[in-house]
Amino acid sequence: DIIVVALYDYEAIHHEDLSFQKGDQMVVLEESGEWWKARSLATRKEGYIPSNYVARVD
């Protein structure tokens, strides 16, 4: 699995987006352009995240 960590807070604009806080970790389900589908490890919610707001966890 690809795990990413949020570098900034993000508040969902569209209903299919996933809100998150800086430091939250998410599993990337699908990488497509600038918006990736991800699942929050904390809340288990799924949605689209801006890929430039996150960094991969090695």
Rank of each mutant, 00 (worst) to 15 (best):
V54W: 01
R56M: 07
I3M: 13
A38Y: 02
V4M: 02
D9S: 10
G23Y: 03
A38V: 13
E11M: 03
Q21V: 14
V5P: 00
L41W: 06
S40K: 08
G33P: 09
S32A: 11
S32I: 07
E46F: 05
V5M: 11
V57G: 09
S40L: 13
I2L: 06
V57N: 09
Y53T: 05
Q21D: 02
L7V: 06
V27I: 15
Y53W: 10
G23C: 03
K22T: 13
I13T: 06
K45V: 12
Y48V: 10
G47I: 01
E11C: 15
L41T: 07
H14T: 05
A6P: 01
A42L: 11
R39L: 11
I49F: 04
S40D: 11
Y10S: 04
A55P: 01
A38G: 07
G33K: 11
A12G: 12
D17S: 12
R39E: 07
R44S: 14
Y48T: 13
L29M: 11
S32N: 03
V5E: 05
M26H: 01
Y10V: 02
S19F: 05
H14A: 07
A55D: 11
A42P: 12
P50E: 01
R44L: 13
Y10A: 02
Y10H: 06
E11Y: 04
K37E: 05
Q21G: 08
D17G: 10
G23V: 00
G23A: 06
I49W: 00
M26Q: 01
R44W: 06
D1N: 14
V5Q: 11
P50F: 09
T43R: 06
R44H: 07
D58T: 07
K22P: 05
A55Q: 13
E30R: 04
S19W: 03
V54Y: 01
G23M: 04
T43C: 05
A12D: 02
W35Q: 14
S19I: 01
Y8A: 07
E31R: 06
Q21W: 03
Y48F: 13
A42E: 13
E11T: 11
M26C: 02
G47C: 01
G47E: 00
L29K: 08
G47K: 00
S40N: 13
N52Y: 04
A55T: 12
Q25W: 05
R39V: 06
W35F: 15
V27L: 14
E31G: 04
G33L: 10
Q21Y: 15
R44V: 10
E31I: 15
W35P: 05
H14N: 13
Q25V: 04
V54F: 02
A6T: 02
R56P: 05
G23T: 02
V4Q: 02
P50C: 06
S32T: 03
D17W: 07
S32F: 15
E16Q: 12
D58S: 15
V54M: 06
K37A: 06
W35I: 12
K22S: 12
E16F: 12
D58G: 10
K45Q: 13
R56D: 06
L29D: 03
S40R: 09
G23K: 04
D24C: 07
G23F: 03
A6G: 10
V57Y: 08
Y48H: 10
A55G: 10
S40W: 00
G33T: 08
E30M: 07
Y8R: 11
V4L: 10
V28Y: 03
D17V: 08
K45I: 08
P50A: 04
I49N: 00
V54S: 01
V54A: 04
Y8D: 12
R44P: 10
P50I: 03
W35D: 09
V54L: 03
E30W: 06
H14Y: 09
S51K: 11
I49L: 06
V5L: 08
V57E: 05
Y48C: 10
H14P: 02
S51I: 11
S40Q: 09
D1W: 01
A38E: 00
T43G: 08
G33A: 06
K45E: 14
R44I: 10
R56T: 10
Y8T: 05
I49Y: 01
K37P: 10
L41G: 04
E11L: 09
K45N: 09
H15L: 11
I3V: 07
A42R: 14
S32K: 15
Q21M: 04
R56Y: 08
S32Q: 15
W35H: 14
N52H: 11
D1Y: 05
V27R: 08
Y10G: 00
E31T: 07
